[in-house]
Design a protein around this nucleic acid. Structure first.
Length: 263
DNA sequence: GTGGATCCTAAGTT
DNA sequence: AAACTTAGGATCC
């Protein structure tokens, strides 16, 4: 999510299932190189009937405008470990710094394998695969701080240890219903009410998840609550009822709109 | 225009 | 519920 690079010439690169993928668009078709079509389809949720989904929550002027501005926008399905770690690190942080942190981690604790060799990204781009939890679990807190993580360093180490051990099998969590999944993920260190929604939505494909970050919070208060003071939880509950079971997809559209025109 | 000192803030969690 | 690390960006000389 945070680690895709603009390679120029209308082409973008990032890691999908252990392969470095290059994606470009030809007319209304997407072209994938370095990765199986199947994996790419899963990653970009291309099996989802987008008009059917967006039609379900095209219910008011704000979301309507967002749908008009960002046609084709989809929710990705990322690897749960990378997703959980990335969003944990995003807490009380800014995007440029976050990407710098992730780049350092991937350059220092992961090496490129797989993908077609000619298409391997350079280390300078910071585009190695995301480090495995077993690796990060053994890295000292001091070294993690050295990657610029700050106070988040111990969280990442503890999370990596949990995921690398049998304590937290992120793949087995797929079998759980939304509430069970939410409760399980919340036990991970550094994951709270906002990040858990991100992981559910962007890694586990739970369309009913609705992350309320500062941007969505501001925007929703402005657009739907007459700028009243409302808790993030209330906003989430409202969104779930207002937009329905795919409110998480609506969140993506609103998020883009909120960042483009801040309140 | 360029360089550096300083201030401020940040896709929240504990 | 106040505190949390610190890099990157903005502002200002």
């Amino acid at each position: 999510m945070f680690r895709w690079a603009d390679l120029g010439g209308g082409s973008f690169g990032g890691w999908i299932d252990g392969s470095f993928a290059r994606v470009s668009q030809e007319g209304d078709r997407l072209l994938f190189r370095g990765v199986s079509g199947e994996a790419a389809h899963r990653f970009f949720s291309l099996e989802t009937d987008l008009p059917a989904v967006t039609g379900e929550f095209d219910v008011d002027p704000a979301i309507h405008e967002a749908l008009r501005r960002y046609p084709g926008l989809r929710v990705i399905r990322q690897d749960p470990w990378e997703c959980a770690a990335s969003f944990m690190l995003s807490a009380y942080n800014n995007i440029p710094r976050l990407t710098g942190m992730l780049d350092q981690l991937s350059c220092r604790f992961a090496s490129p394998r797989g993908g077609d060799s000619l298409a391997l990204p350079s280390r300078r781009l910071g585009l190695n695969p995301f480090p495995r939890p077993e690796v990060l679990a053994k890295v000292s807190e001091r070294v993690l701080r050295n990657c610029g993580l700050g106070y988040r360093a111990p969280y990442l180490k503890a999370m990596a240890q949990a995921v690398a051990s049998t304590r937290m099998d992120l793949e087995r969590l797929r079998a759980l219903e939304d509430e069970g999944l939410r409760r399980a993920l919340l036990t991970l260190p550094g994951i709270g009410e906002k990040v858990v929604e991100c992981v559910m939505l962007f890694a586990y494909g739970r369309g009913a998840a609705f992350p309320v970050d500062v941007w969505i919070g501001r925007a929703m208060r402005g657009w739907y609550f007459r700028r009243r003071k409302v808790s993030d939880k209330k906003i989430r509950e409202f969104a779930r009822k207002h937009f329905g079971p795919y409110c998480g997809w609506a969140q993506q559209y609103l998020y883009c709109l909120a960042r483009q025109m801040p309140c």
